Simulated assay, not measured.
Amino acid sequence: MNYEFLLKEADHFGVSVYEEPLKGKIQGFYGDNVIWINKLLPSSANKYCILAEELGHYHTSTGDILDQKNIINRKQEARARSWAYERIMPLSKIIEAHEEHIRNKFEFAEYMGVTEEFLEFALKRYKEKYGVTVSYNEKYTICFEPLGVIKWFDKFF
Rank of each mutant, 00 (worst) to 15 (best):
N2T: 04
N2D: 07
N2S: 05
N2V: 02
N2P: 01
N2W: 00
N2G: 04
Y3N: 03
Y3W: 08
Y3C: 01
Y3V: 00
E4Y: 09
E4N: 12
E4P: 05
E4F: 08
E4S: 08
F5L: 08
F5H: 09
F5V: 12
F5Y: 13
F5A: 05
F5T: 11
L6D: 01
L6G: 01
L6K: 02
L7V: 02
L7D: 01
L7A: 00
L7M: 03
L7T: 00
K8H: 09
K8F: 08
K8A: 12
E9H: 04
E9Y: 07
E9D: 10
E9T: 04
D11F: 05
D11L: 10
H12F: 13
H12W: 09
H12G: 12
H12V: 11
H12K: 14
H12L: 15
F13G: 02
F13E: 10
F13Y: 14
F13A: 05
G14V: 07
G14L: 07
G14Y: 02
G14R: 07
V15M: 06
V15S: 01
V15K: 03
S16R: 14
S16Y: 14
V17T: 00
V17K: 01
V17W: 04
V17N: 00
Y18L: 14
Y18P: 06
Y18V: 12
E19N: 08
E19G: 06
E19H: 07
E19L: 09
E20M: 15
E20D: 11
E20S: 15
P21H: 08
P21D: 11
P21E: 12
P21W: 06
L22Q: 05
L22F: 04
K23T: 10
K25N: 13
K25H: 15
K25F: 13
K25R: 15
K25W: 14
K25S: 14
I26G: 09
I26L: 15
I26Y: 10
Q27K: 13
Q27R: 13
Q27V: 05
Q27M: 13
Q27C: 10
Q27A: 13
G28I: 02
G28C: 02
G28V: 06
G28P: 04
G28Y: 00
F29K: 09
F29H: 10
F29W: 11
F29Y: 15
Y30F: 07
Y30Q: 01
Y30T: 05
G31D: 12
G31I: 10
G31N: 11
G31P: 08
D32E: 15
D32K: 15
N33D: 13
N33L: 11
N33H: 11
N33Q: 14
V34S: 06
V34F: 06
V34E: 11
V34Y: 13
I35Q: 00
I35E: 02
I35T: 03
I35N: 03
I35R: 00
W36F: 15
W36I: 08
I37Y: 00
I37K: 01
I37A: 03
I37W: 02
N38W: 00
N38S: 06
N38Y: 03
N38P: 04
N38L: 04
K39A: 11
K39M: 10
K39Q: 12
K39P: 10
K39T: 08
L40H: 14
L40A: 14
L40V: 13
L41M: 04
